[in-house]
Design a protein around this nucleic acid. Structure first.
Lengths: 212, 212
DNA sequence: ACCTGAACACCGTTCAAGT
DNA sequence: ACCTGAACACCGTTCAAGT
């Protein structure tokens, strides 16, 4: 059976779940698809191009259907969908972060956020800045969320190691403990609300920067 | 001359500037230090441990001296120092993001932020959440800032490629253009201000979550 | 057009043996 | 204690040759 581009991407995503991003090699992928590693280069010019296609598939359909509600509700839904899409595959956030090249699906997600912000009264250029700022937050949070998931599955608990380490700063130890033990979804929502509250403040000021 | 741990880390950071994170190999590092690659394992148990030590050195002294001023000014200075530290070496942000294991210097930076937020009246647990949210933002912004720096140095301009690509969404095209052409420092400050405004709003509400 | 088989130029890591 | 030399078990990528 002849291999298609889409089969390679699907197989790669399955292998990603099984082996993780570091264990995803062209040779293993070839074996999983009953093909030599070299044959994959008929479909993708490089491993990087394949990773791009995987990342693109990951965020497919994030902007559809366009969420209802006020701008802040819409933005929250878009961010939640982004996080959920990244969580759907092992190391999804790291995969996406390593390859954010502008491709249709990635653009569609960003375009949706920009549209929401502009409709709310934000100037286009600020809407772009805010969209990327929010994206950085979602990516960073989700990368660490998945990293902790991995540690949890292994015996090696970063959590207990950190908790048992001698802290000369008990305040920070407590803060860190709260970060580690919190429900990731709740902590995610809290940080996102900070940014959204900041945007609301900008709208109140008429979209100009602080102090301007 | 016998090699010390500190010589290995310094050599590795110099090699990082010369070759980038992907070009940083144990073999090249050995050659740069006039030593076989295997000899490096007398000083670090693995490449990962070396990368951890490099990341740790990168953020050395971020919290000292403790910045003066109001809590928001202090937080801004800490974030600026963090960004500056990451920018000091090629791929510094990616290096740090790949290895954030709790080590003394990394903890000191986080502890400083938590202390500032607590002094401002924030509960400890929220201070932790906010500190990490801000860290995700700084990391994400700086990773992309350095990625764009690299593209700029090469001929391959993501910027022009993106600008020339046919956009079915002119609004997003304009927003993206503004993200790409903006002064990175200004865009960084803007996004950070969003988060800080969000924190101010939290303080006004008494530190409870939105809707609570 | 798609794939095999085999190679090329690398990796990180280990380890007996030297000094 | 630190380092060499050499190996082990891998990588991504290329390419003549097959079908």
């Amino acid at each position: 059976m002849l291999l298609r581009k889409v089969n390679v991407v699907d197989g790669a995503l399955a292998l990603l779940d099984a082996e993780g991003l570091d264990g995803l090699t062209m040779r293993k992928l070839g074996a999983a698809l009953n093909v030599q590693a070299g044959a994959l280069y008929r479909h993708f010019p490089s491993k990087e191009a394949l990773l791009d296609a995987m990342a693109e598939k990951l965020v497919e359909g994030i902007a559809e259907p366009m969420p209802e509600g006020s701008w802040d509700q819409q933005l929250t839904v878009l961010a939640d969908r982004f996080r959920t899409a990244l969580l759907a595959h092992r190391d999804g956030a790291r995969l996406f972060a390593g390859t954010f090249v502008p491709e249709p699906n990635t653009n569609a997600a960003g375009a949706a956020a920009v549209a929401v912000l502009c409709a709310a009264g934000m100037p286009v250029d600020r809407a772009g800045w805010i969209t990327y700022a929010a994206m950085y937050y979602v990516l960073g949070h989700t990368i660490e969320e998945q990293a902790q998931l991995r540690l949890h599955e292994q015996g090696d608990d970063w959590q207990t190691r950190q908790a048992n380490a001698p802290h000369d700063d008990p305040l920070f130890a407590q803060a860190l403990g709260s970060v580690i033990t919190a429900d990731p979804a709740e902590r995610f929502a809290y940080g996102l609300a900070l940014i959204i509250d900041g945007v609301r403040e900008q709208l109140r000021r008429g979209g100009t920067a602080r102090g301007a």
